[in-house]
């Protein structure tokens, strides 16, 4: 029994059908708990006032926006190396979800930036990087949509994902070099948890778990949809040939 068994579309659908309700329930419970906990039952930050409550949306969505791209990169690599169709379709399924998370991170960042930095938009390195990431998502989805042949589309988009990842990383450093920025590094990032007080940290963890579960549930659901859509196309094509 290896993980590659689930590369079989039928097995993948059967397995995810079993898991999907549980993951969805977990996402729902975590998101509702975390957001209510964060919104109603956490104190104000002495510096940021009530805007600190935005952290429960901003940080998880930003985190998952990047992780979704990384997941697409891994799925693309699996497609290139092992040619499992489910993998290519999972990458395709994840892209819109990642785009939405990027949008949430950008929107909450702008709404948070307005009172804190006095401006909706600043060409801060992290904001700029997310804008560039957003453009990469758009290009990736546009390429999927533009190509008719499924295998060609999977091949081309996976190479674009690979090349795009390198350039996205390069852009990240270029943007850092280009502008110093306003983000207070440590207090907002996860690797420096000591800077976030426990009262904010625990609900934030629950929210992150909720976003992760939501992402997994959506990717499972959308991958199933892609598999079925592809099967429908294949059946129609076979019928036309016959």
């Amino acid at each position: 029994m290896s993980i590659w068994e689930y590369a079989n579309p039928v097995k993948f659908i059967r397995a995810t059908d079993r898991v999907l309700p549980w993951v969805s329930a977990l996402a729902l419970v975590c998101l509702v708990t975390g957001l209510i906990w964060g919104f109603f039952f956490t104190p104000e930050d002495y510096r940021q006032g009530s805007t600190v409550k935005i952290i429960y949306l901003h940080v998880p969505s930003a985190l998952m926006a990047i992780n979704a791209w990384i997941m697409m990169l891994v799925a693309s690599l699996i497609w290139i190396v092992r040619r499992h169709h489910v993998s290519a379709l999972a990458a395709r399924a994840a892209a819109p979800v990642g785009t939405v998370f990027t949008l949430i991170a950008l929107a909450t960042g702008a709404l948070w930036g307005q009172p804190m930095w006095g401006t909706w938009w600043a060409w801060d390195p992290r904001l700029t990087s997310f804008l560039i990431l957003f453009l990469f998502y758009l290009g990736y989805m546009a390429l999927w949509a533009a190509i008719e042949n499924d295998d060609t589309a999977a091949d081309l988009t996976s190479i674009l994902c690979l090349v795009g990842s390198v350039f996205a990383l390069l852009s990240r450093y270029a943007v850092n070099f280009w502008n110093q920025g306003l983000h207070q590094g440590a207090s907002l990032s996860l690797d420096a948890e000591e800077n976030v007080a426990d009262v904010f940290w625990y609900p934030l963890l629950v929210c992150i778990a909720g976003f992760v579960a939501l992402f997994i549930a959506l990717v499972f659901l959308r991958t199933q949809t892609e598999i079925r859509a592809r099967r429908a196309r294949a059946l129609l094509a076979r019928e036309r040939r016959a």
């Binding site: 919104f39 009530s50 409550k53 935005i54 949306l57 901003h58 969505s61 929107a107 709404l111 009172p115």
Partner: peptide, 20 residues
């Protein structure tokens, strides 16, 4: 909770995110 002068930013963030 009393969101004070930041009510728009906080509520806006939650509304936009939940809608998306």
């Amino acid at each position: 909770p009393d969101l004070g002068k930041y009510a728009f930013a906080v509520l806006g963030s939650y509304v936009v995110s939940l809608v998306l």
